[in-house]
Every structure is written in structure tokens, then in C-alpha cells.
Design a binder for these strands. Structure first.
Length: 871
RNA sequence: GUGCGUGUAGCUCAGUGGGAGAGCACCACCUUGACACGGUGGGGGUCGUAGGUUCAAUCCCUACCACGCACACCA
């Protein structure tokens, strides 16, 4: 143990850089983060949302991962079988697009490398950059069980992916079909509905005339996408629209192309919008696709994978090969020349954009793989409705419910190379073979298709397919491992609301389908982090803050504390203020210096952490112990309720405003010397344990320097409030004295009384002796202060004897304030309805308040009268 | 369009059916046995607007305004 002599030499300022890396290394080397399944203890498992393998820490990790670390540390101290299971996600699209860009910078194209070469590069890249975020997490003090870290592309998880795919296929829940999908022309791949943003953009609405062949009539349509008219196969109007009723069933000629198309009636058309008539391009618009299905219309595709006009399926005139936007301009021009463009108006509407690439999504009819979602969604909905799955805050549950109720089939095939290749093979005749391994596929081909040669489907699976298995695949499923038996389901999942659909809902559906139980009973949705103006942090805006910079400036503890104190239970966002980290650094410095004080007591600290007998404790001792008791209860409750902001505030208040500002000061007066060493070290040791989940480093450093049991605070027991005596009566007495002291100090400064440190000699009974126990017994020279401790709520009446001129103004102000309070209170108590209808204790309290005000007013008025003032 | 959230001190945000709060910023004072990354005190708000319920509303209800978010097939 560190001796007081040595610790007095501690530097005045706490330096996290000298502490944090050393302690983290100690913890990891000692295996404190590691845990094995133990059925004898309650499990507390959090599956970490796997960050992208090539990702870097950002502030969002602060709000979503710090709580996971906090809860894991808290539950470990509670003695639970606590483990935080980390890992990395291969992040198919994100990784592949970044790698393609990097390669391009070196003059290498994806295709020139070939599939195997590209994948080899991707692996190499993952291995070299994949450690970055893990190292950053260590810097932040995050302590997951690194030995159990998994990667979505590692062999175990990949085989789980294949198993799930094959199982769902054989159950008929995975199918291949030609459907309208979302095509990202930049990323050259499909994306799922959940990966699309709708963004408002300025555009145009063009009115175009579609004439009949014989010129006897024409119909005018409105469109934002004239280029898709090349693929029109109908014009639709509302069935009850009288303007067009006579035209339904007739044909018009597609301008510029000359193809005849029918006019159909469909309820999807809004009569009030545009002209009430709409062109129908089934292969390139979701609504039109539905109309096309209902009317059995042809569905020619006119755009290729580059979003260029293609005449492969139908004649597209001179526009073949043009980019979609060039074609739009050309067609508008040509329509104008042909006299068929009636009107062009400015129009603002929302456009579907790929979340990842920002490219405008092109709806395309394409042969892809899908998961039938309805049968999977039903149990996931049921689990939410009957309470087996709950969200904190609750409102996110309704979001989840709404999405599952309207769920559509999930397009899972991607035209990427980096990912899990579909376990699907085709025979030359187009027969489909689905198998977990190539050997199995060949075996099927041999027995069922006469040994036909097989070609593997080149597509890979949506990243979220493998992450959807995360809560059980990381535990070794499908093997019945001890981990799976003890740790599934886990206890809580913590993430941001932006991936409730992409990830959370899918984990619930797949977990329930394959293991029969929800993967976690509780989902805590942490707030997202924005800048102080509420804008999203981004590189392009230049407002992004790198958490590593904050750690560099303030330390990891300060970063964690700074961000947690900005979290509110119902909040959906944090407007991040760096000043909060600075405050937290100051807080740590406060802790450091309080520790220097404790360690430098001349009498030294007791070797063991024991308290003096109750009878020997002073009022100040009883007060701080009572507050410790209450703070333990408060922090525990708040951690249990995911209320990290208030938990952090509670320890903050206790440490700074109660322990440092009042108790430490109280220990400086001689009357407190006999018990102070024991109480200071006991309370400070407990405070460090309460702080540890939030600020792991400084709490460990201080705890190790104090009397303690064990080798690390990480496995110390969570403070038990029942071991700390609660004496509310003594505490309230001390708090009354605190309030009185504050009033005395206020008077001293307001009245500009000369400073004096003479003890107040005329304090009545209890308070006189109590005042001896604090360092704040300062009475101003020449002033006599009396305090009435009997008043409710710590309100103390104070009479100061001082030069009359100084007092006069003060008393006048007091009299004004008190008269208004008395008046307010009297009118309230004079109201018969108030007496009759208000709760009795409220009335009693009001009477007591009135008495107190009257007494104080009487005192002030008699003082004024004595000075010759009349009321 | 539908749903959700938010509007309280200059800033960021707590909070409560019965006397408006914190931190930062600001002002003044203070080196007092740990801490100036400190201590003490102070100024500052018609609790978005308008109604309603209630003995009593910043808090509950309704409408409106402003901002944010999610969902949605108005081309």
C-alpha cells in the first residue's frame, strides 16, 4: 500500500495519460475482462453491436458503447456472470466501396484483380486496419471480453450463415424471384428498403400529351421522370374519375416512340394530383409495378446497371446508351419540339437515395433472392406485444411494431464480392441447388441432376443477414456450447435507433425462429450524437469531433463522464458540448486532490476499511454516511433503469458538492479529527466503487491507493447500502446547518462585513455544538448570528448585529420579500376551497410556512423599528 | 400525409399539480491545513402561444406556432 509520505508527493494535477494506458494494460493482462459461463450466477451478457471492421471510433460510440461498458462493469461488481461480447462486422458495402476507391487511387480496378484477388485484398485490408477500432476502444477504457471477439466472416459465423440460409430455403422462406428492387447505380448493387433515405429535392413536373393514334383525343399526364416513358406500357386513371371514364380501355400512342399503350383504371391514381392521369412504367417505379401486376401489363426494362438507357428489351429509339439524366433532358427537348410538352413546373419532392453511396436509387426489375418476412415477423410482433421484448424508451417499441406490421420481403442478394457468397449453385438447365457446402451441392447434383456441372451464384448476402444471427452465432451456434446454454438469451442490447429495423428486428426474428426465444428481453436505445447546433456530425460539414482528440485533451474517464452526463432517459439526441468533457476533467482533478488530502492526514489512514462505533461518530460523519447510503441506492436504481445521465449526476454531486465541499472541510476542525481518517477512507473507497463503471481509470488508481481489499476495483463488490448506516435525523440536522452557514456567508458578503474567523458564540444549543464540527463557523467580526434550527426545510432565521447603516438596506429588502410571501400565503389559506379540497398535509405545510414567514417578518420589523424605521 | 419527440436563465439541459433548478458563460470577492482544472457569493427566466380542467397549472387536456426525427407508392 502507498504510504502517506509518498502520496504527499503526488502532483497537484491529475494526469490521465500517466494512468490510463498502464491500468488498461494491467486489466487486460490480468484477464479481468474475461469470463466463462457459470450457471451458478445470474448471467449479465451484452452482445456488442459489431463495429465495421474498417471503422474508426466516433462520438456515437460514446453514447452507445459507454453504457454497455458501464453496465458490464456494474454487474461484474454485483457478482453476476457478466460478459460483454465484442466483435467486428465485415460491412460488405461499406468495406467494398472504400476498398474499390483505395484501389482506384492506385490505378487498380476491382475487375482486373478478379474475385479471388479482390477478396484476398479485402482480407488483407481487414487484418491490417481491423485492429484500429479495437485499439481505440481500449483507449476509451471499454472492457469487453476480447478473447471472445468474433468476426462476421470467420469460419464459425460463416457456417452459421450458410446453415440459416439453407434452413430457411428448405422451409420455403427464402426464394428467388424477379421483383422490383432498389438498384444503386454507383455501388452497382441492390440495397434493401431499410437502407434507403428519402430526401427532399427540387425537381420539375412535366405535363406531356399522349395523343391517340387517329388524333381524335389525347390524354395529358404529369411526370417527374420523362425518361422512363420509354418503358411505359399504359396510362392509368382513377376508376371513378369522370373526366377520363370514357377513355378507359382505349389506346394512346407513346410520344417519340410510337408504341400504342392502353388506358387503364386503377385506384392507386390520385385524382387530385397533376392531371389525374399517370404514365405507367412497371419496371421502374414501385407504384407502377403494382399497377402492372394488377393489369397484367408488360414490364420492359429500359435501364441497365449503369442507369443508362438500354434497348435490350424494347425499342428505345435514339436514346439507347444515354445516361438517365441526359436522356431526361433529351426527351424533354424532343417533346417540346414535337409540341407535346404542355407545361414544365418547378416541383419539390422526395427522392430515394442510397444511405451508403448517396446515389439516387433506381427501381429495377431484377432476378434476386428474398426472405419471406411475414411468418418471421409474426412471432417477433407477438413477443413485443406480450412483453417478452421491451424497448427503453418505450416509444421505440411502437416504431418496431409499426415496421413489423408493414414488413415486406427482404432482398438479401448483393452484387458484391466481399461477403458471404450465397450457398447456391445452378445447373446448366437452370435448376437450383442450395447446400451448406460445395461437396453437399455436388452430391445433390449427382443424385438429382445426373451429375450436371454446377455454377455457383456470384452474389453475396446482405451484411445484415450475418449480423442478424449475432446474438447466437457468436456463442457457437449451432453447437450446443456452454456459452450458448448460459448466455442465450443475453440480458440487454444497446444500440442507436437508426438500426432498429436493419438489425434489432432481424435479430429478434431470426433468434426466435432458430432458438425459439427472443435474443434479449430489453433493448435500450441510446441517443445519437449531434453537434451543439443539432446538426449531424460529418466530415464534410467539418463539425465532426474525434473522440481520440477528446481523450488526448481530457482523458478517457472525462470523455465517458462528459458524454454520459449529457444522456437523458427519454432523449433521442445529444447536442454534444465539449465543455462537458472539460468539466469532467476538472472533476477528476477534484477527486485527485481530495485523495491527496485524504492520504496526507498526519495521523495516517487505518489499514483496514472499518468504521468507528456509532457512538463515536460526529454529526458530520453521520451525514456523509447517510448521503453515501442514499447515493448508493440512487445510482443502483438509475443504472438498473438505464438512466445514465442521472446516475452520473448523482455520483458527481456526492463527490464534489457533498464529500469535497462539506465533509472534507468539516474534517479540518479539531472536533472531527478522531474519526475522520476512518470515515474519509471508508466513504472515499465506496465512492470510487460507485464511480468505477463510469470512470474506470481514476477510480482504480485512487482505490488502489486507499485501504482496500483485493487486487483491482474491477472485481471489488458493488457498495451495499445496507452496510452503511442511515441516520436521516442527524443528516437533516447537518443539512440545516449547511443552509444556515450559506445564509451567514451570504450576509457576510452582502453586508461587506469585515472578515473574521471567530467562532459564533451565541448559537443556540444543538447548532452551537454542530457548528464546531465544520469549518464554516465563521461569524463576521462585530456580528452576532442566531439560527433557529426548528424551522422546516432548513430555513433558518438569522439576526445579524452589525453597524446599522449596513443592515438597514438588507432588512428593508427582507421585509419586502417576506411581506409578499406572507400575503401570498394568507390569501391561499383564506380561500375556503383550498382548505376544503387540498390534501391535509398540503394545508398543514402551508400553515407552517406562513408561521415561519410571519416570525421572520416580525423579527425583521422589530429590528427595523429599533433602527427608527416604521413599517 | 401519418406517427413520434422537443420547446424552461445568453448556451446545453434537469425538474415538479401547491415556495422556478444545474453546469457552462457573466460579475464581485477570496490564495483559508487537497485542488485557480480551486473556493465563496451574486445578477439573469411572464417555464413557446391561446384556451380548458382544478381550490391551485411550468407540470394534466385541447388547439395553434416553431424546430427535429421516423414512416409513406401523390407520378
Amino acid at each position: 500500500m502507498t504510504s502517506p509520505q509518498k502520496t504527499t508527493q503526488l502532483p497537484k494535477n491529475y494526469d490521465p495519460k500517466a494512468v490510463e494506458p498502464r491500468l488498461y494494460e494491467f486489466w487486460e493482462r490480468s484477464g479481468f475482462f474475461h469470463e466463462d459461463p457459470d450457471p451458478a450466477r445470474p448471467p449479465f451478457i451484452i452482445p456488442m453491436p459489431p463495429p465495421n471492421v474498417t471503422g474508426r471510433a466516433h462520438l456515437g460510440h460514446g453514447s452507445t458503447y459507454t453504457p454497455q461498458d458501464v453496465l458490464t462493469r456494474y454487474h461484474r461488481m454485483l457478482g453476476d456472470n457478466a460478459d460483454w461480447l465484442p466483435g467486428l462486422d465485415h460491412a460488405a458495402i461499406a468495406t467494398e466501396s472504400v476498398l474499390v476507391r483505395e484501389l482506384a487511387a492506385q490505378g487498380i480496378s476491382r475487375d482486373s484483380l478478379g474475385r479471388d484477388g479482390f477478396i484476398e485484398r479485402a482480407w488483407e485490408w481487414s487484418r491490417t486496419t481491423g485492429g484500429t477500432i479495437d485499439a481505440q476502444f481500449r483507449t476509451l477504457g471499454f472492457g469487453p471480453d476480447w478473447q471472445r471477439s468474433r468476426f462476421t466472416m470467420d469460419e464459425g459465423l460463416s457456417s452459421a450463415v450458410r446453415k440459416v440460409f439453407v434452413a430457411l430455403y428448405r422451409e420455403g422462406l427464402i426464394y428467388r424471384g424477379k421483383r422490383l428492387i432498389n438498384w444503386d447505380p454507383k455501388g452497382k448493387t441492390t440495397v434493401s428498403d431499410a437502407e434507403i433515405d428519402h430526401i427532399e429535392r427540387d425537381a420539375h413536373l412535366w405535363h406531356v400529351r399522349y395523343p391517340s393514334k387517329d388524333g381524335s383525343f389525347a390524354i395529358e399526364i404529369a411526370t417527374t421522370r420523362p425518361e422512363t416513358m420509354l418503358g411505359d406500357t399504359a396510362v392509368a386513371v382513377h376508376p371513378e374519375d369522370e373526366r377520363y371514364a370514357a377513355l378507359v380501355g382505349k389506346h394512346v400512342v407513346l410520344p417519340l416512340i410510337g408504341r400504342e399503350i392502353p388506358i387503364v383504371a386503377d385506384a392507386a391514381v390520385e385524382r387530385g394530383f397533376g392531371t389525374g392521369a399517370v404514365k405507367v412504367t412497371p419496371a421502374h417505379d414501385p407504384t407502377d409495378y403494382e399497377i402492372g401486376l394488377r393489369h397484367k401489363l408488360p414490364m420492359p426494362t429500359i435501364l441497365d446497371s449503369d442507369a443508362k438507357i438500354s434497348g435490350a428489351e424494347i425499342a428505345v429509339g435514339p436514346y439507347a446508351g444515354l445516361d438517365r439524366y441526359d436522356a431526361r433532358q433529351r426527351i424533354v427537348d424532343d417533346l417540346r419540339v414535337a409540341g407535346l410538352l404542355i407545361k414544365e413546373e418547378a416541383y419539390r419532392h422526395s427522392v430515394a437515395v442510397s444511405e451508403r453511396s448517396g446515389e439516387v436509387i433506381e427501381p429495377l426489375l431484377s432476378l434476386q433472392w428474398f426472405v419471406t418476412m411475414k411468418p418471421l415477423a409474426e412471432p417477433a410482433l407477438q413477443a413485443y406485444r406480450d412483453g417478452r421484448l421491451r424497448f427503453v424508451p418505450e416509444r421505440y417499441g411502437r416504431t418496431y411494431e409499426q415496421w413489423l406490421e408493414n414488413i415486406r420481403d427482404w432482398n438479401i442478394s448483393r452484387q458484391l464480392w466481399w461477403g458471404h457468397q450465397l450457398p447456391v449453385w445452378y445447373t446448366p438447365d437452370g435448376d437450383v441447388v442450395v447446400a451448406e457446402t460445395e461437396d453437399e451441392a455436388l452430391e445433390i447434383a449427382r443424385t438429382r441432376y445426373n451429375g450436371a456441372p454446377l455454377t455457383r451464384d456470384p452474389d453475396t448476402l446482405d451484411t445484415w443477414f450475418s449480423s442478424g444471427l449475432w446474438p447466437f452465432s457468436i456463442l457457437g451456434w449451432p453447437e450446443q456450447t456452454p456459452e450458448l446454454q448460459c448466455w442465450y438469451p443475453s440480458q440487454v442490447l444497446i444500440t442507436g435507433w437508426e438500426i432498429i429495423f436493419l438489425w434489432v428486428a432481424r435479430m429478434v426474428m431470426l433468434g426466435m425462429h432458430f432458438l425459439g426465444r427472443v435474443p434479449f428481453p430489453t433493448v435500450f436505445i441510446a441517443p445519437l450524437v449531434f453537434d451543439a447546433q443539432g446538426r449531424k456530425m460529418s466530415k464534410s460539414l467539418g463539425n465532426a469531433i474525434d473522440p481520440m482528440d477528446l481523450v488526448e485533451r481530457y482523458g478517457a474517464d472525462a470523455f465517458r463522464m462528459g458524454i454520459l452526463r449529457q444522456m437523458r432517459l427519454e432523449g433521442q439526441e445529444i447536442r454534444f458540448q465539449e465543455s462537458r468533457c472539460e468539466e469532467a476533467r476538472n472533476f477528476n482533478n477534484k477527486i485527485w486532490n481530495a485523495t491527496r488530502y485524504v492520504l496526507s492526514l498526519p495521523e495516517g489512514l487505518p489499514r483496514a476499511m472499518t468504521l468507528p462505533k456509532d457512538a463515536d461518530l460526529t454529526v458530520a460523519d453521520k451525514w456523509i454516511l447517510t448521503r453515501l447510503h442514499e447515493t448508493i441506492a440512487s445510482i443502483s436504481e438509475r443504472f438498473d433503469a438505464f438512466d445514465f445521465g442521472n446516475a452520473a449526476d448523482a455520483i458527481w454531486r456526492f463527490v464534489w458538492y457533498e464529500f469535497c465541499d462539506w465533509y472534507v472541510e468539516a474534517t479540518k476542525v479539531p472536533q472531527n479529527h478522531t474519526t475522520r481518517a476512518a470515515v474519509l477512507s471508508f466513504v472515499w473507497n465506496n465512492a470510487m466503487r460507485l464511480l468505477h463503471p463510469i470512470a474506470p481509470f481514476i477510480s482504480e488508481e485512487v482505490w488502489l491507493a486507499l485501504p482496500h481489499d483485493g487486487v483491482t476495483i474491477m472485481t471489488a463488490t458493488w457498495p451495499d447500502r445496507l452496510e452503511v448506516a442511515l441516520d436521516r435525523e442527524a443528516a437533516t440536522l447537518f443539512e440545516t446547518h449547511m443552509a444556515a452557514t450559506e445564509q451567514i456567508r451570504r450576509l457576510k458578503q452582502e453586508l461587506e462585513l469585515p472578515l473574521g474567523s471567530k467562532p459564533a458564540t451565541k448559537l443556540p444549543g444543538d447548532l452551537a455544538s454542530l457548528a464546531q464540527l465544520t469549518a464554516y463557523t465563521e461569524a463576521a467580526a462585530g456580528a452576532v448570528i442566531t439560527v433557529d434550527p426548528k424551522l422546516e426545510g432548513g430555513i433558518a432565521a438569522i439576526v445579524v448585529e452589525a453597524p446599522a447603516t449596513l443592515l438597514l438596506e438588507r432588512y428593508r429588502k427582507d421585509a419586502i420579500r417576506l411581506r409578499s410571501e406572507v400575503q401570498r400565503s394568507e390569501s391561499k389559506l383564506g380561500n375556503g376551497d383550498f382548505i376544503a379540497k387540498a390534501a391535509p398535509n398540503v394545508v398543514t405545510k402551508e400553515r407552517e410556512k406562513l408561521d415561519a414567514y410571519r416570525n421572520e417578518l416580525a423579527r425583521v420589523e422589530s429590528a427595523l423599528a429599533a433602527m427608527g424605521e416604521t413599517a
